[in-house]
Design a binder for these strands. Structure first.
Lengths: 191, 191
DNA sequence: CTGCTCCTGTAGCGATTGCTACACAGATCG
DNA sequence: CGATCTGTGTAGCAATCGCTACAGGAGCAG
């Protein structure tokens, strides 16, 4: 056990400062000295409180993941809704400016995770897992279909994120509209 | 114009070697000396032939993007098909082991592009644009719906990629099945 | 007082980064 | 022949990286 020394309040302060910095500047180019300078301290101190760059990064990404899930959960109704409704609500929440930074970071981390780099891989897998179970609990579908529907909605949400950050403006909106139209259950719709 | 010196054939050889190396080791940790060692040369030579690390990277990503689009185009029927059919075909092609490396690299680059880093941003935007128009040309939909449908399919494909590389095995398959079921057009079906 | 532990500042280490200066061999050209 | 251009090897530079060794001030215990 190397990390975790120092006064807990100071560690918390450094941690939340680091979260802000990472949300703003990303994770791919993160290095200790610029981060420490932005926090008004030195790399020496960050290593004292977190032990290792990787442990600091893990802590930061953990905070962002929890914060993101809380934001999305708070922006959506608590009771289960049909897939298309949930997707519409999610698509709306994804446009909230307050969620842009964490979502952009999520995409960035996912890209590094796809290559297998730690700690991104572990963190991204945990976040995806959390979303999956959360989506499952909010979906108004037969139990036998629940896991499939959650996986499908997760894929669509992730795809919308990627498209939103890669392609210019209208493409993501077109995708949302077309997909939600198509995901209205073909059976029980009133003709 | 700094880059592009040296015998073209040697440059081609270095380039395709670099492509293989990047496909295998990713782009986030790419540095000149290890790459040069793997190619049996020196960083000095790579800079002589490509001018700059970034120019080399741009060339590599360009080759991968073209190769990927050619692979996917070759694996799918040339005539337009309904969205669900196209999506099924794409989902199948995405499972081909030969496409895994380029697709994983595409996800990695997209993550870095979402943060705005060059040259990833430009390359990823170009690749997404290419896919978008290619998807549009293969979709059997009314012209008024074409752009929306292409955007929707692109989002789903990108989402499936992310899920496949982040979540353990069955999740991506569940998503494919559920989505293709739901995307069977509810309107023009005989009923 | 002495001693001990906790926190922090300074300095630096070894490794790696992209890139460059310089020398030199061979081909080409006058 | 000399001059010049092209390709390549060697060496190195300034910067940055994560991390560590060491010293010292502050508080508390004996």
């Amino acid at each position: 056990m190397t990390g975790g020394r120092g006064r807990p309040e100071q560690r918390e302060a450094f941690l939340s400062g680091a979260v802000e910095h990472v949300l703003h500047h990303g994770v791919a180019t993160l290095s200790l000295r610029p981060l420490a300078a932005a926090l008004g301290t030195s790399d020496r101190m960050l290593l004292y409180y977190f032990g290792t760059r990787e442990e600091l990064l893990t802590a930061v990404l953990g905070v962002v993941g929890e914060r993101l899930q809380a934001q999305l959960a708070a922006a959506l109704p608590a009771e289960p809704v049909p897939p298309a409704t949930l997707l519409r609500g999610l698509a709306g929440a994804l446009q909230d400016p307050a969620t842009e930074s964490p979502l952009r970071l999520y995409v960035e981390v996912s890209g590094l995770a796809a290559r297998g780099h730690e700690p991104h891989r572990t963190v991204a897998a945990a976040v995806a897992e959390g979303w999956l179970s959360w989506l499952g609990s909010r979906l108004e579908v037969p139990d036998g279909e629940r896991a499939d529907a959650a996986a499908g909605v997760l894929a669509v949400v992730d795809g919308l994120l990627l498209v939103r950050f890669l392609a210019p403006g209208p493409v993501a909106d077109r995708a949302v509209g077309w997909l939600t139209d198509r995901l209205e259950a073909p059976g029980p719709t009133t003709g």
